[in-house]
């Protein structure tokens, strides 16, 4: 075994997943509350302070973490203890694994595993995310949690299909399954001025993918599995850090989905209209990674905006939207893409 590769991968993993992914996910717990407050003309969290410094309430995630760690870890009677303990981890880990195939910048150094079949690997890994919600609800021996997990399973399996099918158009246009290759291909300019981003060549797929990804992510307007006001959701019996882990995994998936959308549809680390030759050495890398991060944060912002704008769908509407609208439209998108590509 080549230990250098392992060491390099570990360092990359620490920076990409722990620093970027979990860092942003942690801050998102604050962003979610603050942004909802600002949208609704409120002030939002601003009380937690260290030595009198309030920092717009940025210490609230810290306070939440301390609280989550010190609270009682409750296990309900009749729960399947093994699965009950495992479920939050199963929810969190696939998201962390999926980051391995996303390129943060050009070349092999800024991606953990530069796989040729990156998209397939990603779809395979993220599908595991269902198990966290499903097992969590099932193992806690609670009718509401069970309902939530059933909804989660049905919804995520439904939207998994459209999510995958929307990416088929992308393979066809760019002719590759590798994320790095797709990002390189998005650096071209169409007609000399329009960047050949996924959103430009596959606009319908972008919209459908965003919708399917939101649903996959169990966030509003597709937060049926959680549904705070009707069933409390698959995590109703969870407390302390296990509950926090479920929440963190949800936010982590937000970051992941935003990163996937950035890489596939928004040109990844590409900065359009920028001549890389004009900038010395390493700085171009910094700029490109910065572009990736900024685009990811922008997509997260849009997802948050959707979450605080749209009311929750009814369950039958979610299923109808998934199977009768998004799925046929995805197939239509593939058909049209194939016809256009054959004619070009």
């Amino acid at each position: 075994m080549n230990w250098n590769i392992v060491l390099a991968a570990t360092i990359k993993w620490v920076f990409m997943v722990l620093v970027f992914g979990l860092g942003v996910a942690g801050i998102l717990t604050w962003v979610e509350r603050k942004m909802s407050a600002v949208i609704q003309d409120r002030v939002g969290p601003n009380r937690a302070s260290i030595l009198g410094f309030r920092m717009l309430g940025l210490f609230h995630p810290l306070a939440d973490a301390i609280k989550a760690f010190t609270k009682e870890d409750f296990v309900p009677d009749g729960a399947n203890r093994v699965l009950f303990f495992l479920a939050p981890l199963i929810a969190l880990v696939p998201g962390m694994l999926a980051f391995a195939v996303l390129p943060f910048g050009p070349g092999d150094n800024l991606v953990i595993a530069n796989m040729d079949s990156g998209i397939i690997a990603l779809l395979a890994i993220t599908s595991f995310g269902i198990y966290g919600a499903t097992l969590g609800g099932w193992s806690s021996n609670n009718a509401f949690a069970m309902l939530g997990s059933l909804r989660a399973a049905a919804q995520m399996i439904s939207y998994e299909v459209s999510m995958g099918l929307n990416l088929v158009g992308m393979f066809m246009v760019f002719g590759t399954l590798s994320f790095s290759q797709i990002v390189y291909a998005q650096g071209h300019l169409l007609g000399g001025w329009l960047p050949e981003w996924g959103i430009v060549v596959q606009p319908l797929a972008f919209i459908l993918f965003m919708a399917a990804a939101l649903a996959e992510n169990k966030r509003a307007p597709f937060d049926l599995p959680e549904g705070e006001s009707e069933i409390i959701g698959y995590n109703v019996e969870y407390s302390s850090m296990r509950f926090a882990t479920f929440f963190l995994s949800e936010f982590f998936e937000v970051v992941l989905i935003a990163a996937i959308v950035t890489v596939l549809f928004l040109g990844g680390w590409q900065i359009p209209w920028l001549d890389p030759k004009g900038i010395a050495g390493g700085w171009i890398r910094v700029l490109q990674v910065g572009a990736f991060v900024v685009k990811t944060l922008f997509v997260i912002w849009v997802m948050m905006l959707a979450r605080w704008t749209l009311p929750r769908f009814r369950y039958d509407q979610v299923m109808k939207l998934g199977w009768k609208i998004i799925l046929p439209l995805s197939l239509l998108n593939i058909l049209v893409t194939a016809i256009v590509l054959a004619m070009l």
């Binding site: 942004m35 600002v38 949208i39 609704q40 849009v302 959707a306 605080w308 704008t309």
Partner: peptide, 10 residues
């Protein structure tokens, strides 16, 4: 449209 309203408030 709705997201536009939210963004305006934001």
């Amino acid at each position: 449209k709705g997201m536009g309203v939210s963004a305006k408030h934001f």
